[in-house]
Design a protein around this nucleic acid. Sequence first.
DNA 1: TAAATTATTGTATGTGCGTTCAAATAAATG
DNA 2: CATTTATTTGAACGCACATACAATAATTTA
Lengths: 209, 209
Amino acid sequence: MVRTPPRTQPARTRIEDLRRGELIAAAHRVFMQHGLGGMTTKRICEEAGMSPGILSYYFKGKDDVLFAMVRMNNRLLVEDVLVRLNQSATRWDRLLAVIEGNFPAAVYERNVATAWLSVVAASPGNPRYARLQSLFYARMRSNLASAFAGILPPVRFAGMARTITTLVDGFWLQKSAGEPVSRDEAVTLIVTTVAALLTPDERAALQSR
Amino acid sequence: MVRTPPRTQPARTRIEDLRRGELIAAAHRVFMQHGLGGMTTKRICEEAGMSPGILSYYFKGKDDVLFAMVRMNNRLLVEDVLVRLNQSATRWDRLLAVIEGNFPAAVYERNVATAWLSVVAASPGNPRYARLQSLFYARMRSNLASAFAGILPPVRFAGMARTITTLVDGFWLQKSAGEPVSRDEAVTLIVTTVAALLTPDERAALQSR
DNA sequence: TAAATTATTGTATGTGCGTTCAAATAAATG
DNA sequence: CATTTATTTGAACGCACATACAATAATTTA
């Protein structure tokens, strides 16, 4: 008798998710083109073809949209790496997958780098971002561990992981600064450096099945 | 008869330089504490113990102060490295001087890193910053060349310089992201990596007088 | 000391921002 | 179709900011 089938829920949710998705996508485009500072609510709604007030209806505020956007981008990157990891036979392939996963094709470009940098720079004042950041590093370390497990002792692995993550971050920063570095150059340089840091035995172990 | 000794010039210039210096120093402090976004003209003048309007009197505008500040900080870093370079006997010492010069004692810390990152993120829209940036990289490459000249062929030197600058940038980014890396860890890791990328012969050549 | 120049103040002005909200429209419901 | 509910609008508000500027104080000059 008290049964109240929420038939309205699905419909309402569908349009709500749709609008939220559109706004996030619009925010992404504005972010890429104008940077963090130029990402205004008015511009986002305009880009989405909606009225300025709509943002408050679907989000708590501007920061909420921004966070949702960062979260979504992160999810896409993570999924990409996971797919590659599952397709990798050798540890070396896994290593390559993790490294290349940080430079997605057609994404390693100046605007994106600057946008991402802006978020990092804004992190210290925003606990949610800070948390997202450290999760990012932790996940990358974990992925790298799946390649080096049983080959490098813990201390050396820590150093190796630090070197790789630092190089990745550095390449993104340089991209933002306008340095002419291609995706391939970045990946190649990192791989070369990793190889140089390994002993011949370790290299062999990494490349075997 | 037409002689007009500009006695007034020195006095006027002295106080002008003084005020400009004070404002730049205040801007620096505000920048470090509140980041680029929180660096408002009102706060700067307040920090300098002056009235809000004074800024327009000594500078063209807020951007002008910011640029002067970045310029000054850059100059300090450069001078520091030059002193160290002149005191270095071997090429290896010169290499160390350049690397350590990028992590000045008591300066490699989160606020500074974030501030510096904000400026880089703002560079793409500001030609003056962009120019300063590329000058920075060029100078670093030039300094590194003084260590590797005659030891590494051009192509390998280019790769080596890229590795080093990328690691430096990466360490600053990680510092801003809150990763717990000390100055010594950063320097050690970079030196280790450079050493691993060199052949025994090259290492020996670098360490000889 | 009187006059003129320079330095400093504090207020005023205009701009752009995020957010709110009553009203209008569209959709769903019975 | 009438009514309720969900969605969207666009104007309005308050706020913080950079900058301009007339008024005032201090300093230099003659």
